[in-house]
Design a protein around this nucleic acid. Sequence first.
RNA 1: GGAGUCGUAGUUCAGUUGGUUAGAACGCCAGCCUGUCACGUUGGAGGUCGCGGGUUCGAGUCCCGUCGGCUCCGCCA
Length: 556
Amino acid sequence: MLDVLGTLERTHSCGELRESEVGQHVVLMGWVAKKRDFGVFTFIDLRDRDGVTQVVVSEETAKEAHAKAKNLRGEFVIAVKGEVALRDEGARNAKLATGGIEVKVSEILILNDANVLPFQLEVAGSENLAAEDTRLKYRYLDLRRPQLQHNIRTRAKAVAAIREYFDTRGFIEIETPILLKSTPEGARDFVVPSRIHTGKFFALPQSPQILKQLTMISGFDKYYQIARCFRDEDLRADRQPEFTQLDMEMSFAHQEMAYREMQGMFNHVFTKVGGIELPAAWPRMTHAEAMRRYGSDKPDLRFEMELVDLSGELAGTDFAPFASVLESGGEIKCIVAKGKADYSRKQLDELQDFVKRYGAGALAWIKVGDETTSSLLKVLGEEKIGQLVTSSGAVSGDLVLIVAGRKSVVAASLGALRIEVAKREDLIDRTAYKPLIVTEFPMFEHDEETDRYTAAHHPFTSPMDEDLEKFTTAVNDESQHHLLGEVRAKAYDAVINGYECAGGSIRIHQKDVQALNFKAGHVARIGADAVRIFLDARNSARRRTAVSPPASNAPA
RNA sequence: GGAGUCGUAGUUCAGUUGGUUAGAACGCCAGCCUGUCACGUUGGAGGUCGCGGGUUCGAGUCCCGUCGGCUCCGCCA
């Protein structure tokens, strides 16, 4: 029979007692994290969301409680009454915030017992932790772990900080519907059958895209929402089908204003949540530069190892694979792994397999040293290898890793390899936060398979004013269609440590430009009906709207 | 949709060339223990080796199929 709690109240959490409370009579409640039985007395680590306190039950001073303690097992829920006592000099535990004291127990109430756990909550070393599917099955147990408690609380703090920021900046929090007509976005819709309209379905929002634009047309001027979003796409380690993002939009805005709010919000949240100071003005980089230097539109700036172009050096080469790559408009680039000339054949093979996943045909290498060796030595000759080493900036002891191919393949494979090598060699400063705004995303992406241009963003994204003429020509003159690939958009991302943590764009506010954009291929793809409500609404009240749509939760 | 990889005790894993009774650590159970905090110590329980089929005198191990997990590519405008 379990004990009755009655009207007994906690006096402290398990994380707050210190030397200053010594002598006080206290009541703690929580979960038995650990029991250490010494026969005549028993130590119990009592845990709640605030921390752990050691309580000690002695047979000598509390016979009944001591007998009860004998029966305690992991994760029993108990209440203890007792007196805070200073620990002896040698018996303190620096690892616990409460380690200077312990509670001498006079009475124990067993509020609930517990079955043997299906997995251990606390184990030495994360590699011994049960697999995630096991932990998810018993999510309520997993969530007791201090690490997850911390994550959940961090999230709560972040959300509070977001509301705090936008409220003071004059943004209005507005909820939008979850059960909707499908709106044109990129992902697959989750779908809910309707009871009333048999055979028809609601779509769940992939983001509140259209709805927030309507709030601008309605005159709310500045909107934000902590919005649930649903996308029925395949999962990844850091991707879920159902997630939360900060969604915001403002009227009469240009890009600088959007950057300002984006930076301001992140800086506020990082300060509030982690005490982390990000630069007031984040560094910026164009999309083209990011791709060129890092092979990624979300570069991780915590380490160097930039991509170096060797195409010029290799122009006119006899080596057929390289020659054909350059001839067909591809490129040859490399990264330099500092001091890694000692990589084994096996390691290089692994890296080659790695880049092949991104479409690279092979991974060439040069080991720089007193006796420079290379997979290309026979085909290029010693002199050319020496020139490549010089161009790459490698010095003795370094390893040069080279990929040749289509530009997109070279960027994807070397961009990923850069991160892979950094991880393997532990080159990443885990305490650093390196934010970046990536600007001037392209309006269209070139599909190399079909030789077609498809929208890189949503169909309301404005082209850059400087590229408007080019855009007009490209759309109206069939023979100039390829110019679409050169048109840049007023679209941007916020990147921190290689994670895309926000993105957005300035909306088209001119009717004729919008028409051009649809003509460029959007409407055919998404269907005019899908955006009819938006177009109708906009015609009744044209405003210039600027946007920063999906700002997903920053990785903390 | 595709590729790789892993399924062995409650958990994390090892298991040789196919060969007797499948092991370790942690956890669990029982005893002992006056200062532990990864307590110690003695003893014990715990296994349909994911599932199905095949090869073999003999399969955790080899082959085929199947199911599941994880990671990645595609996808996520």
